[in-house]
Design a protein around this nucleic acid. Structure first.
Lengths: 311, 311
DNA sequence: CGTGCCAGGTGCCCT
DNA sequence: AGGGCACTTGGCACG
């Protein structure tokens, strides 16, 4: 692993390092006093101040202040970075086309510039998504209501694809809209669009009812009113708790199997393999990792540490 | 400006520096090989790899790979950072409550750790927002249609606040939904919610029509269909071009004046001070700042630059 | 703090 | 490339 760091470099030195770091495809951080300008989908200006600029080899650029999770300015992946010295300042510019956007960062002073080679390791596993909620429902449709039978996922309609489509015990068509968290009015509108679209499909008996069910952990009062106005229903349901890391493999596999891969078609009978309705068998945590006092005697990796503070 | 940097520190050294940097309220970057775990609103795991961890004094934490604008993992502002050495790894943990969330980053190796003092300079000026589009319409309502008269902004309805509410030349109620960019079906649904809500207000003549107009630069085909189904209209309009930086002050002031500050009430007559309808007088750019070849002779700031590369 | 909504949203997947 | 939508959306403003 290679890290190159310049402390309070001249603009020209910073420029050289930036250009070679661009060539190497390094991840770059620049900390210094700068002003920022953006022009593209919108336009913005930011006065002088100390910020952290991150330049990624995929073309992303981030300008971070000491606050917020969101960068104060940025450039999306696919942009190309350029560096130059202009008017006694180090100018870093990131541009892209379609849409045309330009981010310009002008440094009056660079306090630190680092370039590091970064590779791989981006495979993130997430649980608790809407897809997990859908799996849960497909595994056990009775969670929605007794006798509910899903017939398709992502079935297309004139208003867009529906999360889950099916029939209730009496054979009435049912549209499900799934949300992984508490929802407001927009979710009701979304459901309404789909229900209306299905109701108006030409090959459908115009008198046949179409039910709409919003599946979400909870809904706001306003959403509940709108839901009632339209005669829709709410079923309180959340994504399943994440499985215990050790035992998750089997459960995930069975869930995958229950997921109908073919879209707009009938899902196979939910294979009742792992027939524990909600087996929340927690408690297999590694005891060594709970939160204890900060200091701990631990072996240290060999490595000559150097420390410098400037000014 | 102070920057403290450790190169390939031992975990214990990194720990010390982290704790003092927390105390100082510094912005911290840690580059190293780590695995990441998140549990809270959802849950996720990320295997070993080289990443950049940014810890902000406001509690934000960002884990960045070499790709994407969005961090692969993060913690929102308001969290509290902790550091410890556990099982021979440097563990950085960021926690918050309501909702309960924990981000855990475990470093097997720290390549670089930097701490920098950052203050102020977060005043971003943006133009081209929906608010700008609204100003534009309030300044010249005829842009929507001849004779249109706005009577309120953000007027509340049973379905939520409407962007602009008014009457057309014939006295019919009009609901405007503004979008700064091309829109899809959801914008139509949003407009529909407001129109329906207004139409059903008890003090209103049930036979009186309520028009709905979607003001956006453009709309998708599907949105156009849904719009037509509901008998709504689309007016193609964008946020105004950003003013020339030098001349913007006066224009901005007049625009601010035209903005009705009191909500749910009648806006004062648009003061026709700067009565150029669309004075796109571009062309006052500083010629010194266009894109020219990279190298340029420029004065360099004094400052002893040091450069180190590791391994 | 919850509710509602804009955002330069970003990212993913599909056509 | 554009459409449609989920997201640990984030952030803001208002009740």
């Amino acid at each position: 692993m290679t890290v190159t760091t310049l402390h309070t470099p001249s603009h020209r030195e910073a420029l050289w390092e930036l250009e070679s770091a661009f060539d190497r495809g390094d991840l770059i951080t620049v900390f210094g006093e700068c002003s920022v300008e953006y022009e593209g989908r919108a336009a913005s200006t930011l006065g002088l101040g100390n910020r952290l600029l991150v330049l990624k080899p995929d073309g992303s650029a981030l300008v971070h202040t000491d606050e917020k999770r969101t960068p104060v300015n940025w450039q999306p992946p696919g942009s190309t970075h350029h560096a130059a010295v202009r008017d006694g300042r180090l100018r870093v510019r990131s541009e892209r086309t379609s849409p045309d956007e330009t981010l310009t960062v002008r440094f009056t002073a660079v306090h630190q510039l680092s370039a590091m080679g970064v590779t791989g390791g981006r495979d993130l596993e997430v649980t608790g998504s809407e897809a997990d909620l859908r799996r849960r429902i497909l595994e056990d449709p009775d969670l929605v209501e007794p006798g509910f039978e899903p017939t398709a996922v992502e079935r297309d309609s004139a208003a867009g694809p529906m999360d889950v489509f099916g029939v209730d015990a009496s054979g009435t068509a049912v549209v499900l809209e799934l949300k992984r968290r508490r929802v407001g009015p927009s979710a009701v509108s979304q459901l309404a669009r789909y229900v209306d679209a299905v109701a108006e499909e030409p090959d459908r008996d115009p008198d046949a009812a179409v039910r709409g069910i919003l599946v979400a952990p909870s809904i706001t009062d306003r959403a509940a009113e709108l839901l009632a106005d339209r005669g829709f229903e709410h079923v309180a349901l959340e994504p399943p708790e994440p499985e215990t890391p050790g035992a998750e493999t089997k459960a995930t596999d069975s869930a995958e199997a229950a997921e109908p891969k073919a879209e707009t078609t009938e899902p196979e009978e939910p294979k009742a393999e792992t027939t524990e309705p909600e087996a929340e068998t927690l408690g297999t945590e590694t005891a060594s990792d709970d939160d204890e006092p900060i200091e701990a005697d631990a072996p240290e990796p060999s490595g000559s540490a150097s420390r410098e503070s400037q000014q």
